[in-house]
Nucleic acid binder design. Structure first.
Lengths: 200, 200
DNA sequence: GTCTATAATGTGATAGAC
DNA sequence: GTCTATCACATTATAGAC
C-alpha cells in the first residue's frame, strides 16, 4: 500500500472519529508512525487532506450503492434494495456516517463541488426507484429531496445514537450492535415509506 | 444581562457555527469584547462551558416543545402539533440543529447525563401521541426510538442542507429560506407518518 | 468581577540533509 | 520520498493587580 493511501486511510478514520478541528497533524502522524513532513509532501495542507478524505469517502459510498443496487426486481423490492444498498455501504465503511453528519452540521463548508455529482446520482437513483412504484396521487409530485433527507437523516441519526454510550434506544437489544441496528432501521424505513406512499 | 449569560449566548452561537474544536477561547472573547480571564472566572474550562451550552440549548428546546405542545386536540392534529412543536423550537433557536448534529456525529461524547431526561421526556411525549392514534396492527409494537430518529434526523438533515450553499434541494424555492423549509418538512413528515401507520 | 501579563504547550507548516 | 530540526504563532489556562 502506497504511503499516500495509508495517510488517506488513517486520516479518514481519525477525521471520522474526532472531526477536522479535533485532529492534529501531530497525532495523525503519530498514529501513522511516519514523519509529519512526509504528509506535507503528499498533501498540500491539512484542509487539502481533509477534502481529499471527504471526496474519497463519498466516492466509496457512491460506488458501493451503485454496485449493490443494479439487479432487476419488482418495484417494491427495488425500493428495498435501494435502502439496503445504503445500509450495506455503511456496514462496509461506517466512517461515512460521522463524516457526513459533521459536514451537514457544518452546512457543507468543506464539501467540494466535485462531490456534488455523487449526491445527485444518488437522488437520481431514488427518482428512478420511485417512478416505478404505483404512487398515491398526493405523492406523485413529491419533493425528492425531502424523501432523500428522510432516508439519509433517519439512518445516520439512528445508527450514530445506537453506537453511542447514551442510554437511549435500548429497547430491542440493538444498542451498540451495528449490524442489527442497521438491519432494523432499513426495514423500518422501507415499511414506513412503502406503506405511506404506495397505492394499495 | 449578566456576564455569564452573555458568555453562554455568544458561546452557543459560535459553538453551533463552528463546533467545539473550531472555536478558540481567544476568538470567543474577541466576539464578546471581554477579557479571557473573565470567562475562566465564570466557567471552569472550555469543556465545562461547552457542556453548559449543550445543556442550556437542550433545555430551551425541551421548554419550547413543552410550551407549544399542550392543547387538547384530536389524535391526528395532536401528532401534527408534536411535529410542529419541534419545528417552532428550531425557528426560535436554530443553534440546536447544528449542535445536535455534531453531538450525534460525535457519538454523544460530550453529552452530560443531566440532559438525558430532556430526550426521554420528548420520547415519552411521542409515545403518548402515538398511543392516541388508531395504529395499524403492524405498528402497534413499533420501536419508539426508530420513529424518534426519523423525525429528528429528517428535520435536522433537511433543514441544514437547505440552509447550506450546496446546490442540492433547489427544486421548490425553499433553499436558504428557513421558515419555508421548516414548514415544508413538517408537513412532509406528518403526511408520511400518518399515512403509513394510521388505520384508515 | 474584570483586567494585564505571561506561562507552558501545541499547532500547522517548511527548509534542507539524506 | 522520508527524515530532523525548527519556525512563527495560537492555544488553554492562570497568577496577581485593581
Amino acid at each position: 500500500m502506497k504511503t499516500s493511501e495509508k495517510i488517506l486511510k488513517v486520516a479518514a478514520d481519525e477525521f471520522a472519529r474526532i472531526g477536522y478541528d479535533g485532529l492534529s497533524m501531530n497525532s495523525l502522524v503519530e498514529k501513522l508512525e511516519i514523519n509529519k513532513a512526509t504528509v506535507y509532501y503528499h498533501f498540500k495542507d491539512k484542509k487539502a487532506l481533509y477534502k481529499e478524505v471527504i471526496k474519497h469517502e463519498m466516492k466509496k459510498n457512491n460506488d458501493n450503492v451503485k454496485t449493490i443496487f443494479k439487479e432487476n426486481k419488482d418495484p417494491e423490492n427495488l425500493f428495498k434494495s435501494y435502502i439496503n444498498a445504503h445500509i450495506l455501504s455503511i456496514k462496509k465503511n461506517p466512517n461515512i456516517v460521522q463524516i457526513a453528519l459533521r459536514e451537514i452540521a457544518n452546512f457543507g463548508a468543506d464539501v467540494d463541488e466535485e462531490i456534488i455529482p455523487y449526491i445527485e446520482e444518488d437522488i437520481n437513483f431514488l427518482k428512478l426507484v420511485l417512478d416505478d412504484l404505483n404512487l398515491k396521487e398526493k405523492y406523485k409530485q413529491m419533493n425528492l429531496f425531502s424523501i432523500f433527507s428522510l432516508i439519509q437523516g433517519t439512518i445516520k441519526t439512528f445508527y450514530a445514537i445506537q453506537m453511542s454510550d447514551l442510554p437511549i434506544g435500548l429497547e430491542e437489544g440493538l444498542k451498540k450492535d451495528s449490524e442489527k441496528s442497521l438491519n432494523h432501521i432499513a426495514e423500518f424505513i422501507s415499511n414506513i415509506l412503502l406503506d405511506a406512499i404506495v397505492e394499495k
